[in-house]
Amino acid sequence: MTEPGLDEPGRLELLHLAEEALRRLAPTLPPDAAALLRRLQAAVPTAELASPEAMAAGAASLFALAQDRPAGVTRLRLLPPGPGQGAHAVAEVVTDDMPFLVDSLLGALARQGRVVRQLLHPVVAVRRDPAGRLLALGDAPGAVLESMMRVTLDAAPAAMLPGTAAAAPEDWPALQESLARALADTRIAVADFPAMAAVLRRAEAEVTPPAAEPGAVEFLRWLAEDISCCSAIAAWRWPRVAASPRCRRRISACCATPPCRSSTCCATSPPCRRGCATPWRRRRRSASPRRTCAARCTGRSTPTWW
């Protein structure tokens, strides 16, 4: 069933004009570029559609970015405001479709104080050759789903989160670096989640009643629910001395087994400054009881720790 409003005569005419503008702007592009244009605008209300020329320029730019993407690589481009670009900045992303992409991207933008004016995010079936060159869009044998995003931003930053200052207005390289880091950490967390889920299942077996604390098994099962992604798990062995009740390990994101691949992980340091737990690098030689710590992301780019 077609969604209401997508076949309005006025909307169809605007999209037709946008396709004509696309052919004038980039006459060498294949018909798949026009298909991407329609996919980009599919969720935009008719009243909010941009001019045909602007829609054509956006589709041509994103299609060009998608031309070459080797497996496992994220293509990211930040277009600052200026001549030929207009009054707003634009971030373009082409990557494998995976959970938490939009939340991670929006979180990184918020930390930089960047206000999102429009987010276009079609998930497109894509066929590529072994080198990553784009062959065609659309469902076909060998096609995989890719996320293609085009995010329009205000040129001026603002302090959007408590305790954070607005970023420098012209510091676009820092913004691109922040977005690249957020997308890279998202890829790591999603790829490592199956291994972390296996650790949680082993931990569940270790805390079975009657030795388990009340609610421990239910808590571990909740961590592994499909609605979230476990971003970090660390298993420690504790010395046979009284441990500080405040002992908490706070790291950003790491994989289930060392060495960690995250750029923000401190998994090689002791979990407690009071010295009440053994460091990660020594835990395999310890015969003390094991304690498991996990982080669970629920639609936010900042994890919560237990």
Rank of each mutant, 00 (worst) to 15 (best):
T2M: 13
D7M: 11
H16E: 15
L17I: 04
L17S: 11
A18R: 07
R23V: 15
R23W: 13
L25H: 05
L25K: 08
A26E: 08
T28H: 14
L36F: 10
R39E: 13
L40N: 02
Q41K: 02
Q41R: 05
Q41Y: 02
A42V: 15
A43R: 01
A43V: 05
P45S: 00
A47C: 05
E48L: 04
A50W: 03
P52F: 14
P52T: 09
A56D: 00
A59E: 09
A59Q: 09
A60K: 07
S61V: 09
L65R: 07
A66D: 02
Q67K: 01
D68F: 06
P70V: 11
A71H: 10
A71Q: 12
L79F: 04
P81L: 07
P83L: 04
G84S: 04
G86Q: 00
G86N: 06
G86L: 00
A87R: 10
H88V: 02
V90I: 12
E92M: 10
E92H: 05
V93K: 06
V94H: 05
D97Y: 09
D97K: 07
M98S: 11
M98Q: 14
P99T: 05
V102L: 11
S104H: 06
S104F: 04
L105K: 00
G107D: 03
A108F: 08
A108M: 00
A110G: 02
A110C: 07
Q112I: 11
L119I: 10
A125N: 10
V126I: 10
R128V: 13
G132K: 01
L135A: 12
G138R: 13
G138M: 14
D139Y: 03
P141N: 10
V144A: 10
V144L: 11
M149Q: 12
R150E: 12
R150I: 14
L153W: 08
A159R: 02
M160C: 02
T164D: 03
A166I: 06
A166G: 11
A167R: 00
A168C: 09
P169D: 14
Q176F: 11
E177L: 14
S178N: 01
L179W: 02
R181F: 12
L183H: 03
D185G: 04
R187F: 03
I188R: 15
V190A: 09
V190E: 11
P194H: 03
A197S: 05
L200C: 00
R201I: 00
R201K: 10
R202P: 00
E204V: 04
A205G: 10
E206I: 09
A211E: 14
P214E: 02
A216F: 00
E218T: 07
F219Q: 08
L220G: 00
D226N: 01
S228L: 06
A232I: 07
A235L: 11
W236N: 03
R237T: 09
W238F: 14
R240W: 05
V241Q: 11
V241Y: 12
C247L: 14
S252H: 08
A256C: 05
C260N: 03
R261A: 13
S263M: 05
S263L: 08
T264F: 07
C266K: 02
C272E: 00
G275A: 00
C276Q: 02
A277V: 10
P279M: 05
W280E: 12
R282E: 11
R282F: 12
A287Y: 08
S288F: 08
P289G: 10
R290N: 04
R291A: 08
T292H: 12
C293V: 06
A295N: 05
A295C: 08
C297G: 04
T298W: 09
S301E: 15
P303G: 04
